[in-house]
């Protein structure tokens, strides 16, 4: 996390000392072995547990998704909580950890909007099965991590988590923050040359809109959010059904140059669309459960469930969107696409 202030104070001493600690690249890096010919990453996004959540019900909902997809890794892409308490936040990550599957978390813009401190939440999300660490150094964002997927001692895929941060004040308004330059440089330092990768974040990139402009249909999913006019972006593409960062980050360029195959986020609950831009798949997972708000597909089923990314030993990448009804707990649809190389 970047030090933004320069207020000399004894109270800040522990923090200042902590920030001087040298961070080794391996603090960010975890390794998971690929035990079969593919590696399955389940993305749960915008879970949004709050004070009104029926927690046993939502656990049952996620149990079905996990059992159905049999993942090797679970990635939670932000907004797992919303105006909740420490008790609820503890229940959520107790549950995630209890699944016994390696998991990783990137924060969304709402994850600190509850009755806890950020340092408490950092500790709460890192449990026994966490495949990531919270590293506090000069890199912006709290949840930047990389997981190397190894086969026979060789890295065959990399899975990145990039903290898209939350808000930035703009007078009396808050705009969505963006992936800062320090994170882009961090990513460039962690990406292994010639190794395919996928990345997870929360707030969409501007390139999502560029992909939409080139091909509104995309390769999978739907766009059910109303149009928005993000300042700056609106001059380039007009009003589009995305709510991206307010500043154009250079992360996409770095990701494309590093050979990243896909970047997947959350944030816009009613969207589960994925498009292609300059050879990279860009889009959303499927909102997990009905909490807060959710979209309904053109065919009438809820756009709720999860996304599964199947990373092949042959560098193939499959995206599966599975839709699970929150009331009946029955699957309403499942779609799989192969991402072109």
């Amino acid at each position: 996390m970047r030090l933004k202030l320069a207020v000399p104070s004894l109270a800040l001493l522990p923090f200042l000392l902590a920030s001087c600690t040298a961070i080794e690249p391996d603090d960010y890096r975890k390794v998971i072995s690929m035990e079969r010919d593919d590696f399955r990453v389940l993305q749960l996004t915008d879970i949004h547990w709050s004070l009104s959540t029926n927690i046993p019900r939502q656990k049952e909902y996620m149990d079905i998704l996990v059992e159905h997809s049999d993942p090797d890794l679970i990635v939670i892409t932000g907004d797992a909580l919303f105006t909740a308490t420490k008790n609820i936040a503890t229940m959520l990550y107790d549950y995630i950890d209890s699944l016994g599957i390696p998991y990783a978390v990137v924060y969304g813009n709402h994850d600190m909007q509850g009755m806890w401190s950020s340092s408490w939440m950092d500790q709460n999300i890192v449990r026994e099965n966490a495949a990531f660490s919270i590293v506090q150094d000069d890199v912006d964002g709290r949840t930047n991590w990389v997981i190397d997927i190894e086969r026979d001692g060789e890295t065959v895929w990399q899975v990145f988590g990039i903290d898209s941060n939350s808000y930035m004040a703009d007078g009396l308004l808050y705009q969505y923050d963006y992936i800062q330059e320090s994170q882009v440089q961090w990513f460039q330092g962690m990406a292994e040359e010639g190794v395919p990768s996928i990345g997870f974040l929360h707030i969409p990139l501007w390139e999502y809109a560029y992909a939409y402009q080139e091909d509104p249909d995309g390769i999978i999913g739907e766009l059910r959010e109303p149009d928005s006019a993000t300042p700056g972006l609106v001059d380039e593409v007009g009003e589009v059904p995305f709510y991206p960062s307010s500043v154009h980050s250079s992360f996409f360029d770095a990701a494309r140059e590093a050979g990243m195959r896909g970047i997947f986020g959350g944030h816009d609950h009613s969207n589960d669309w994925v498009g292609m831009y300059e050879g990279v798949a860009l889009g959303y997972g499927v909102k997990c459960g009905r909490e807060l708000y959710y979209g309904v597909s053109e065919e009438g089923y809820d756009l709720t469930g999860a996304a599964l990314y199947t990373l092949g030993i042959d560098e193939s990448l499959q995206i599966t969107h599975m839709y699970l009804d929150n009331t009946t707990l029955e699957f309403t649809n499942e779609v799989t696409v192969e991402v072109a190389r």
Partner: peptide, 13 residues
């Protein structure tokens, strides 16, 4: 008291 970031950079501010 329960959720302040007591030793954060912004606490004094």
């Amino acid at each position: 008291v329960d959720f302040a970031n007591w030793f954060s950079e912004a606490f004094l501010l």
